[in-house]
Simulated assay, not measured.
Amino acid sequence: MRLRSVLLSLLLVPLAGCELLDLVESAGDDAAVAPAPTLEPAEARSALDALRTVDRRPRVPAYDREAFGPAWRDVDRNGCNQRDDVLLRDAVPGTVVVQVQRSCPHDVIAGTWTDPYHGTRLEFDDLKDQRQAQAIQIDHVVPLAEAWVSGAHAWSAERRSRFANDLPSLVAADGPTNASKGSQDPAGWRPKAAFQCAYATRWIDVKQRWDLAVDTSEARALASMLDTCPTPSPA
């Protein structure tokens, strides 16, 4: 796998040989990109019970995508935009190929990913090709439009921008799957059964960290998905 990555990089990246090899050797090391937080199912249940509740269709101003600022802002100031940070973090270890682009040391150009909602294997050899780039998208676990009605409409522009680019709230996902999810919450859309536990815990984590509310139907769907989580083995 490492040799294939090096050969692929030699075709795709016009860098000097030594520099390129150093870059590919370090491409699998995502130490500079913080991992996504996870809650244990029991923690997620407690967090869900503690979330504020709102009406299913609260009376708030009309959703405005521009209120969240442009995508993908480099909020952590590591030189790379959040798309590249997520692609690097979520790639199957040992498969990602990067290049240095301006201030970004890990501009991702190829690799393999597993869609977190359906388990589809996604392999790309040139993410500078628009068709390939559209086939893997960066998804807001809690969609911006859903966050808006859950409390973000009252935030400052800066807080909305930070939420829209919050690394732990983002995942690399299959393009068509992301499109089918759209702005729906768990009451309207669910991933495959095998991925519902992870989806619910991440959704709840985002809402807890950003103090976003849930409605009754949403909370019921989340509780149902938490029921799919494995039962801990007795000590």
Score class of each variant (00 low, 15 high):
residue 47 A to R: 03
residue 48 L to Q: 02
residue 40 E to K: 10
residue 155 W to D: 01
residue 70 P to Y: 06
residue 46 S to T: 12
residue 54 V to P: 01
residue 196 Q to I: 09
residue 119 G to R: 06
residue 68 F to H: 05
residue 221 A to D: 11
residue 90 D to R: 05
residue 133 A to N: 14
residue 216 T to K: 13
residue 233 S to A: 15
residue 60 V to Q: 00
residue 77 R to E: 13
residue 92 V to K: 05
residue 192 K to N: 14
residue 82 Q to A: 08
residue 110 A to K: 02
residue 15 L to A: 15
residue 119 G to V: 06
residue 135 A to L: 11
residue 140 H to N: 14
residue 217 S to D: 15
residue 93 P to L: 09
residue 162 R to M: 07
residue 166 D to V: 03
residue 151 G to V: 05
residue 182 G to K: 10
residue 213 A to T: 04
residue 137 Q to F: 07
residue 124 F to Q: 02
residue 86 V to D: 02
residue 121 R to C: 07
residue 175 G to S: 12
residue 142 V to L: 13
residue 221 A to T: 14
residue 161 S to A: 15
residue 137 Q to Y: 05
residue 38 T to N: 09
residue 142 V to D: 07
residue 78 N to Q: 11
residue 115 D to G: 10
residue 1 M to E: 13
residue 36 A to K: 13
residue 131 R to Y: 07
residue 2 R to Y: 06
residue 15 L to F: 07
residue 186 P to R: 01
residue 139 D to S: 15
residue 225 M to H: 08
residue 177 T to R: 11
residue 78 N to C: 07
residue 74 D to V: 10
residue 136 I to R: 01
residue 91 A to N: 03
residue 216 T to F: 08
residue 195 F to N: 06
residue 36 A to Y: 07
residue 201 T to K: 03
residue 136 I to K: 01
residue 132 Q to C: 08
residue 103 S to Q: 14
residue 223 A to Q: 15
residue 82 Q to D: 06
residue 124 F to I: 09
residue 7 L to I: 13
residue 154 A to T: 06
residue 109 I to C: 03
residue 150 S to F: 01
residue 89 R to G: 02
residue 134 Q to T: 05
residue 115 D to S: 14
residue 187 A to M: 12
residue 129 D to H: 09
residue 4 R to C: 08
residue 6 V to E: 03
residue 216 T to C: 07
residue 47 A to F: 01
residue 53 T to L: 09
residue 161 S to F: 02
residue 115 D to L: 10
